[in-house]
């Protein structure tokens, strides 16, 4: 590893371009935050790093496209993983044709179902955390994810995506319906339970 190029500066981590034994890699380093006390900072950084690695490897085992993990440093809060070429779904979704958009969204839904079939909750399903590469949807940033089989968690997971689509792709808000179509197809348990849950969560929100 030589000098670092920062690819993206997220809210909680920096993504640097890196190299792992000759493979093009990215390094995700959770940055220390001066605004929070050390107790909270330490706890969040090591816990989230460990959880994220567990979830990414878990997702891969279920056939969902995620970056390959090369190396982990818990104290430092660093994960070195495969570099994904391709584009953020956030940037391309509005530009696609209606049919293509529906197809991509269904694919997203199918993959989320694969995760949920194995109780993997992504925790931050937004279109900026999905990459399109060779017709595969790569899921990145499992930083807020958890292992949880409850319908509630699955509902909240999808609700986050629903809100993200409503705010970022408001002209194509029906995208979420396509996501649900794909989700229903792939989910092993009764998807209607989850869909009902989402409706309940929406109502639970303020002033609905």
């Amino acid at each position: 590893m030589t000098e670092k190029t920062i690819l993206y500066r997220g809210a909680e981590a920096e993504i640097c371009l890196s190299n792992y034994m000759g493979f093009k890699a990215v390094q995700k380093k959770r940055v220390r935050k001066a605004y929070r006390i050390k107790d909270i900072d330490d706890r969040l950084i090591s816990f989230r790093t460990k959880e994220e690695v567990k979830l990414i490897t878990g997702a891969r085992r279920q056939g969902v496209s995620v970056p390959i993990i090369y190396d982990v440093d818990l104290e430092d809060g660093t994960i070195t993983m495969e570099y994904i070429e391709g584009k953020r779904v956030k940037d391309i979704l509005n530009e696609l044709s209606e049919g293509e958009r529906a197809r991509i969204c269904e694919k997203i839904g199918e993959n989320i179902a694969k995760l949920h079939n194995n109780d993997i909750i992504h925790g931050d399903l937004t279109t900026s955390n999905m990459m399109l590469f060779y017709d595969h949807i790569y899921f990145i940033d499992f930083g807020l994810g958890e292992k949880n089989g409850e319908v509630e968690s699955k509902g909240v997971d999808l609700h986050v995506l629903m809100e993200a689509i409503e705010s970022t792709h408001s002209r194509h808000a029906n995208c979420f319906d396509y996501v649900l179509d794909g989700y229903k197809k792939e989910l092993k348990e009764d998807a209607n339970l989850v869909v009902k849950k989402i409706e309940e969560i929406v109502k639970r929100g303020r002033y609905r």
Partner: peptide, 18 residues
């Protein structure tokens, strides 16, 4: 205070990044 405000600050930062 430390816990709730840290969470609020974190989500605000996430929204700014997003």
């Amino acid at each position: 205070q430390e816990t709730t405000f840290a969470a609020l600050t974190e989500v605000t930062e996430r929204a700014m990044a997003h």
